[in-house]
Design a protein around this nucleic acid. Structure first.
Lengths: 126, 126
DNA sequence: GTTCGTTATTCCTTTTGGTATATTACGCTC
DNA sequence: GAGCGTAATATACCAAAAGGAATAACGAAC
């Protein structure tokens, strides 16, 4: 065990091969309500106009994307995504006001986390 | 979909059924180096004097605990846990100075994260 | 040299989270 | 009403992570 000597400059305090990582999410009645992946998915839905397009653009299966949307809609008091089936282009999905707000709110939070991690990483003597 | 109306007091800004959660970890060459679970495991090893005792106290399989220790030792420049096989009480494990420091450093970080989450949750209008 | 508790390691099974695929429903356009 | 692209949903499959159990190695105490 521990045969390898890998790292250098561990006590300089400046450079280290370690990295401080983290994630945050808003949890609701059934676990995660909004997290980074879900926020990005909402953005893609807004831009693509459909769940399937959004999923494809993220290399995510439609099934998975649909479940995430369903989970968010069920947990939000008011749906974040409105869908239409059938119709001109087969249907589609678009964000509600609440959906727009969710993106905005979460991404701001996510930004703050990034700042937090950057600051704390700077203090690390590791 | 979204048949249920669950929440009340969503715009009061004070009370909400949502909760802001998060986790952080220090990542190394092979993914996670130290996270909360690993830090607690180190504490238990320090207190129990063995990996098996620590695992049992956390209702974790020995196999899993051993792998975590192995992963930490391999990624740290200097091992965090020293083990002995055979001997008076069958062997055991104890923390190195680096192991003690790892606990201390990470738990301080973890504490800061908790403060961060508390503050940010307070700002949530969600 | 036997006993004992722990480390170290292997094999098998279960769980879990995802993809892939297929089917049905839908509603506008033509 | 036929065709289309999408939503909605079920089933099957796959792979990584974890658990459980079993085994060997070890070394002090007796």
């Amino acid at each position: 065990m521990s045969k390898k000597k890998i790292d250098t400059g561990k006590k300089g305090g400046a450079k280290s091969s370690y990295e401080l990582k983290g994630r945050i999410w808003v949890s609701g009645q059934e676990g995660t309500f909004v997290g980074y992946g879900r926020a990005v998915l909402l953005e893609r839905i807004r831009d693509c106009g459909s769940i399937s397009g959004a999923a494809k653009s993220m290399k995510m299966s439609y099934r998975h994307a649909w479940r995430l949307v369903d989970s968010m809609n069920r947990q939000a008091g008011t749906p974040l995504v409105e869908t239409a089936t059938g119709g001109a282009r087969g249907g589609g999905a678009r964000l509600t006001k609440a959906g727009e707000r969710a993106i905005e709110n979460f991404l701001r939070l996510h930004q703050r986390l990034k700042e937090f991690l950057r600051e704390e990483a700077g203090n690390l003597t590791w």
